[in-house]
Design a binder for these strands. Structure first.
Length: 502
DNA sequence: ATGTTC
């Protein structure tokens, strides 16, 4: 039992309430053994001050009465850059770009293969060499034409596939037709991809000449990874059977986002919000600038929504390519395999619904039966993928659509040590860990830089230290909070075989 | 998280 933060009121063993002067319903799903970070509670209370900003903005502009209708914090919530990671916030007549986080559509992709752990284990050393080449030594040659890049940004993976051939050399020609009812957010149709004209035209000499570029197929940094795992334990045999998660089955998991594109979209939002802020109205002390959903901001919102949609489409498409790259490595070293998408789920997005908008920052949808009506998961609830920290187990759960979290679950174990602080554990401890868990990185202290600059972002040792297991909470109590709190039920536990860190 | 370097 951890000492209770005096600002949180415990309702029962699994739920707390965050009282606030604006009477916004604000609940936290967390068991008594989950440590809660006071600095993150500070941030949540500061975010709730946006209730006052919205009132002032509506009054100053004569716009519709905007308000916060609900706040929820997931069991892994921790301090972010202004707004906690693990925040779900629902607004009415307002949109808060900052409540999505910088990395637009950061999320998870999980594929179930026809291989078993016994098939893969003897091949791990060879697979490590192969993946080092495929991900970091120029082996990643994913050829796209400017027209295909534009199609991906404007209409997502479905739009990309409509462009015809799939010339992603060396990665097979498999398309993603099987994925459309297994992707939470398959596409964000946008009117334009003008915000990313430079990237679209970057490497191609002509509109239809397909070339590789330095962005597509990159993993990213921080807690992002591509990992081979096996089903180590089944918690819900019927659901696990339906999901294809038999014990010993090898799965591949990608955790990645929109790389630089989401940041650029957020820069667009920041500029537009400042430019459209009413003259004479003081900017909010908490730094959170809302778009009011009225005619006045419609042109600015349109520009932002296009850039946001472009970045979101890129992120899901890039996860598709990351999975293709891992499949190519597996096929080369372990023989023919099938790999079927289980689910692609976002962590950082917003969901408009009439006058209301649900925003998730570092939280994942955990809808119930109704959310996946007609799809393959209708009998079970939405798949929820909770990645473990480096070396730790990950979990697949099924959502219950709990309104107390706005049908949301957590996106990991949650940091224990802030990113900026030195993580506990020295070099020797990290060396031992890296040897044990076969972490493939382009920058390995035993094997100096193998990546060409510009072809890949190097995994800096400093970053690996920040991602070491001891920098994170235990995932067990976090997942148990979701189960006991009624948010989602564990289906299976996945343990790592080999991790590729960006 | 990003992309990289005082």
């Amino acid at each position: 039992m951890h000492r209770q933060d005096h600002r949180l009121e415990r309702l029962d063993d699994h739920w707390l309430r965050l009282p606030n002067p604006w009477d916004v319903p604000a609940l936290v799903c967390a068991g008594t053994d989950v440590p809660l970070e006071p600095a993150a509670v500070d941030e949540a209370l500061a975010l709730l001050e946006t209730a006052a900003s919205l009132e002032a903005l509506s009054a100053a502009t004569g716009g519709p009465p905007a308000r916060i209708t609900r706040l929820a914090l997931t069991p892994d919530f921790h301090k972010g850059a202004g707004i906690p990671i693990g925040t779900v916030i629902e607004t009415e007549h307002a949109l808060l770009p900052q409540a999505v986080g910088n990395d637009v559509n950061c999320g998870m992709r999980l594929e179930v293969t026809t291989l078993t752990a016994d098939d893969v284990r003897p091949r791990l050393p060879a697979l490590e060499r192969r993946l080092r080449h495929l991900f970091f030594e120029g082996g990643r040659r994913i050829a796209l034409s400017p027209a295909q890049r534009e199609a991906l940004l404007r209409d997502g993976v479905p739009g990309l596939l409509l462009t015809g051939a799939a010339p992603w050399a060396g990665l097979g020609d498999r398309d993603a037709d099987d994925s459309l009812d297994r992707v939470h957010a398959p596409a964000f149709p946008t009117g334009t991809a003008e915000a990313f004209a430079d990237w679209i035209g970057s490497a191609g000499a002509t509109r239809h000449e397909a070339t590789h570029d330095s962005v597509i197929g990159g993993i990213g940094g921080g807690n992002h990874f591509v990992e081979l795992q096996y089903v180590a334990r089944v918690h819900d045999p019927a659901a696990a059977h339906a999901f294809g998660l038999a014990p010993g089955t090898v799965v591949l998991m990608a955790h990645s986002g929109s790389l630089s594109l989401g940041h650029q979209a957020n820069g667009t939002a920041r500029d537009l919000l400042r430019a459209t802020w009413p003259a004479g109205l003081p900017r909010p002390a908490n730094g959170v600038l809302p778009f009011l959903l009225d005619e006045r901001t419609a042109p600015a919102r349109r520009r932002y929504l296009d850039a946001f949609g472009n970045a979101a489409n890129f992120a899901a498409g890039n996860r598709f390519f990351l999975a293709l790259t891992m499949r190519a490595g597996l096929a080369a070293e372990c023989g023919d395999l099938e790999a079927r998408l289980l689910y692609d789920a976002p962590h950082n997005l917003f969901w408009p619904d009439g006058d209301r908008v649900v925003h998730r920052k570092g939280a994942t949808p955990a809808g119930g039966h109704a959310a996946v009506r007609g799809g393959p998961y209708a009998p079970w609830g939405e798949p929820v993928i909770v990645p473990g920290s480096m070396g730790a187990a990950s979990y697949v759960l099924r959502g219950h659509g709990d309104p107390r979290t706005l049908a949301s679950a957590c996106h990991g174990a949650g940091r224990r040590v802030p990113r900026g602080a030195a993580a506990r554990g020295g070099d020797a401890e990290l060396d031992a860990f890296l040897a044990e868990f076969r972490v493939v990185t382009p920058l390995d202290h035993r094997d100096p830089v193998v990546a060409r600059r510009g072809d890949v972002m190097a995994a800096w040792r400093r970053d690996l230290n920040q991602e070491a297991p001891w920098a994170y909470k235990d995932v067990g109590p976090v997942v148990e909070s979701l189960r006991a709190g009624g948010v989602a039920a564990p289906v299976a536990e996945l343990r790592p075989l080999l991790t590729v860190k960006g």
